[in-house]
Amino acid sequence: MDILFDIISWIFLVSGSFFCLTGAIGLLRFPDFFSRIHAASITDTLGAGLILVGLMFQAGWTLTLPKLILILLFSLLAGTTASHAMAKAALKSGLQPLEVQKDNGKAPEESIGTTDEGALSSKP
């Protein structure tokens, strides 16, 4: 029985690591900010979920199990809220998604340059 649990948790941990790596590679590889959010959300949902479920199999019926469930629930809730907040803040600051950007002819470096300066100049 212990060996069975070990094998199951092995599978979960390895596939979780694989999805985390996939998300990190997507973070480096995707062309613009809005598509990078999607890559980051892979590691946030399935990567974190699989690794934590794999650890739950190792924990067994101890007090560690509910703590892991708490971390999982919190990371799912906080992850979505944080990605929505980031996307909304980026849109409000004038950063355009890749498709819309073609129409405006505005480069992302250009639009963020103004934001950076605005942030600096507003410092007291």
Partner: peptide
């Protein structure tokens, strides 16, 4: 690398969530 400010914030957020996972693994 991140060309924009929000890329950097996204990367730092991702770094933070991975730190949580790493801490959970160190527990074991």
């Amino acid at each position: 690398l991140g060309p924009t400010l929000y890329d950097r914030i996204l990367a730092v957020n991702n770094f933070g969530t991975k730190t949580v996972l790493l801490l959970a693994i160190i527990d074991f």
